[in-house]
């Protein structure tokens, strides 16, 4: 894995090993904020920022971190970046900060971040690690945007807050409510694993 090409890192994280759809990580914080695209975008970028920088930091320190307190160090570094994101949102995007509320703090427990730190940043030099983290986060953002696209269009008839309900259909309240998020992500995972199974069958 050490000399993996940049393009391979990107492709792996966005598609074939997408953390949400293939590894089923980071679901916790992803669903609650997906009823509008604006919230999803900000949340996703926040996560990408934290994953990228924490992977960079942890990889740079990988030779001086005492092994037995490794997890503690990871948590500390991640929490520090999350607090920074939280302060940033409060200062520059107050409306979104108010809507995301405690879900920003919950980025700390997003398994993707710690997963990348454990699985990749520990053995790899800082730059590839940062790239890997960043794109794992962007893969997550992509999924969030996909889910919220469906939920916002059908639930509110809007996209990023702009009205796209040209035919004036009755909006589906269920889309804004929690169950819809489960159904949509279930469907997406179904599609991705069927696709992977098909590919594996072909390879044989």
């Amino acid at each position: 894995m050490v000399n993996e090409k940049t393009s391979a890192i990107i492709k792996r994280n966005l598609l074939s090993e997408n953390q949400v759809l293939r590894a089923i990580l980071g679901i916790c914080s992803s669903l609650a904020v997906t009823n509008t695209m604006r919230n999803s975008l900000v949340m996703g970028l926040g996560v990408a920022f934290v994953t990228g920088l924490s992977s960079l930091t942890l990889s740079a320190m990988r030779n001086i971190i005492p092994h037995r307190v490794r997890m503690l160090v990871q948590t500390l570094v991640i929490a520090a970046y999350v607090i920074f994101v939280d302060l940033f949102l409060q200062a520059f995007l107050p409306d979104i900060s108010k809507q995301l509320g405690p879900y920003v703090g919950l980025i700390i427990t997003n398994c993707i971040i710690m997963g990348r730190a454990e699985a990749y940043a520990q053995q790899n030099p800082p730059l590839p690690a940062a790239l890997d983290g960043l794109f794992a986060g962007l893969g997550y953002t992509m999924v969030l945007l996909g889910i919220s696209f469906i939920r916002e269009v059908l639930g509110f008839g809007t996209l990023f807050g702009m009205n796209v309900n040209f035919i004036r259909f009755e909006t589906w309240t269920i889309m804004i409510m929690p169950p819809a998020a489960f159904f949509i992500i279930g469907g997406m995972i179904w599609f991705m694993s069927a696709r992977a199974a098909g590919k594996a069958a072909k390879a044989k």
């Binding site: 001086i64 005492p66 307190v69 503690l72 160090v73 500390l76």
Partner: peptide, 12 residues
Amino acid sequence: TLFFMTILTAVL
């Protein structure tokens, strides 16, 4: 270990 954690916490 103790030294490392102290420095890290202080910096953060």
